[in-house]
Amino acid sequence: MPVQVKRLLIAFAVFIALFLVARHFLRPATFGEYGHYRGAALKENEDRPIKYVNMNETCITCHDSIAAVRDSSVHKSINCQTCHGPGYKHVDDPQKTNIVKEHAREFCGRCHSKNPARAKVIKQIDMNEHNKEDECISCHNSHNPVLW
């Protein structure tokens, strides 16, 4: 074998060996457990914190009277947190974190402003005409939105 080939083979062998050693140490431990990914990533995805809490286990245990109002209304299928936002902070410390909703008209308008794309079963109003000086809640109870 010519000397060039010998030396080159040694150089390449060293290079490949170094690569294999590096690869051994750089490959994460759980890689390939289920597929071509870090198995631990499944668990990491699972372990992220929950912010929208289970309504029946939390909201309703304290606010049972409001829940009763809601349950008798057209809003009965709507989760508390749809309007009030995520409840995790309030559940952790009800004194400190209040999630009572602001009374802006736009807020109700998210569902009830007039839009031809909206299903007709949803009551819709023209925000620019329907009692435009008043807050919605001065006439409607948001938990049971017939007139007060």
Partner: peptide, 9 residues
Amino acid sequence: ACMMVCPTG
């Protein structure tokens, strides 16, 4: 979360 808050199912 998106399914939980959807008001119309």
